[in-house]
Write a protein that binds this DNA or RNA. Structure first.
Lengths: 226, 226
DNA sequence: AATTGTATGTTGTTATAACAACAAAGGAGC
DNA sequence: GCTCCTTTGTTGTTATAACAACATACAATT
């Protein structure tokens, strides 16, 4: 395991030294596993006791809905975690599946071990829990934000909400978004072609310029929508 | 402050004795405040450092959207908390407002004090943080679930998703839900009258019986939708 | 440069949700 | 019982999103 340095830079382990992390992982009896592309890591419906830390590669969190449609809910990159919620509420069956997007190494941490301060009362443990708390808060915020952006009933409303947030967030009316059309459509829960269409209309109305994932909002007009 | 016993039964303080809670509150320099009905507790746009515990009364978490529509996102009852996410990510301005639904007493806990293990290294503190972690996990799950139930593009799809979850959850095809029509419509992000209408159609199709917030699903037909 | 595949934009049709306005039912208080 | 108020259901109209099918643009590979 030569991932210790890498881990010092993750949200979960930040603030700990390599030595501390080594101790913690031993104490938590962390397990590393490797997955091939498309391999299922967690199946919707099962329940889990461990959270995963992506060491290399990446995974999709996806929702295989009742009618066979798949939609990607999240893409977890190295250093980030998944399954933390379900590992905390262990009785709860997963609503989503986790699949390796490519060849991927995952570090599994048992949540029970993580949550209860260990018998040897290692101090680092508490930092870990506090870090986890911040990760939860951040995920929470992201979920709330998505609900917020999808609460308007029109596609334009959703776009206005999402795009003005991006502008605020990135501190400029010119920015790129981390989604392609299909992903943006999924995020906003709308049809892709309808989304493209609405963007065209907004262009015609002079609200914005678009090229692929690059956007340039018309400050004046956007503000008039407040 | 005669709320100590009450607090032993809350998700946040459970597992602690009255004496421990007294010590913690002192250590955290908790502050109690009283609000009149309709009084604003947190304003959308501001940022906060404290989370609130509802001691008595109750509060609404609401979303005053850009066009003046209000919609209730959550109703927090005694023992439950609000603002924990924003208090953790202190730089983040609130997307929502919190308003007293009636005469309400709130206990405010400063998140910084809560998160850093205090200098006198009180043991109870760690339990508090672990409890908070579970609260976060639960909120997370609720948010995910709502996203899940609103991901279908038809009203019927959303209802099927929500109602089958309720049935599973309550362990019966007969159950009541904690929302009236308007609240359910808000939760599913659809128009109330359209929702009523769709429920009628589902009745005609023999999918269910409804009366106000009481539902009886037709097991056979519901399953065929899987 | 040619080829294949994927992403995006466009259009027309259809389904359906929003909206508005009203009717009916339920509940609280007198 | 009656009045007032809130909640729920109904209907018809309109707006709009989904859908399907195709065209175009872009990217990667050979």
């Amino acid at each position: 395991m030569d991932h210790y340095f890498f881990l010092t830079e993750t949200a979960l382990f930040q603030g700990s030294t390599i030595e501390e992390i080594q101790m913690m992982l031993k104490c938590l009896r962390a397990e590393k596993k490797r997955f091939a592309k498309r391999e299922m890591i967690y199946h919707a419906g099962e329940s889990v006791q461990s959270m995963g830390v992506v060491l290399s590669g990446s995974v999709y969190v996806e929702n295989d809905d009742l009618w066979g449609n798949k939609s990607v809910l999240d893409h977890i990159e190295p250093g980030a975690v998944f399954g933390e919620t379900y590992a905390c509420v262990a009785k709860e069956p997963l609503m989503v599946s986790v699949v390796a997007a490519e060849t991927t190494e995952i570090l599994f941490l048992n949540m029970n071990r993580l949550i209860q301060t260990c018998s040897n009362a290692c101090e680092y443990h508490n930092r870990l829990i506090r870090n986890l708390l911040m990760i939860f808060a951040q995920k929470n915020l992201n979920l709330s934000r998505r609900i917020f952006h999808t609460s308007s009933k029109s596609i334009r409303g959703r776009l206005l909400s999402y795009l003005s947030f991006q502008a605020t967030c990135q501190g400029s009316y010119e920015f790129t978004i981390p989604y392609n059309r299909q992903q943006l459509a999924d995020y906003l829960s709308v049809d892709r072609s309808a989304l493209s269409n609405e963007l065209s209309k907004m262009k015609k109305d002079g609200l914005l310029e678009v090229n692929r994932n690059y956007f340039h909002l018309n400050e004046e007009l956007f503000k008039s929508y407040l």
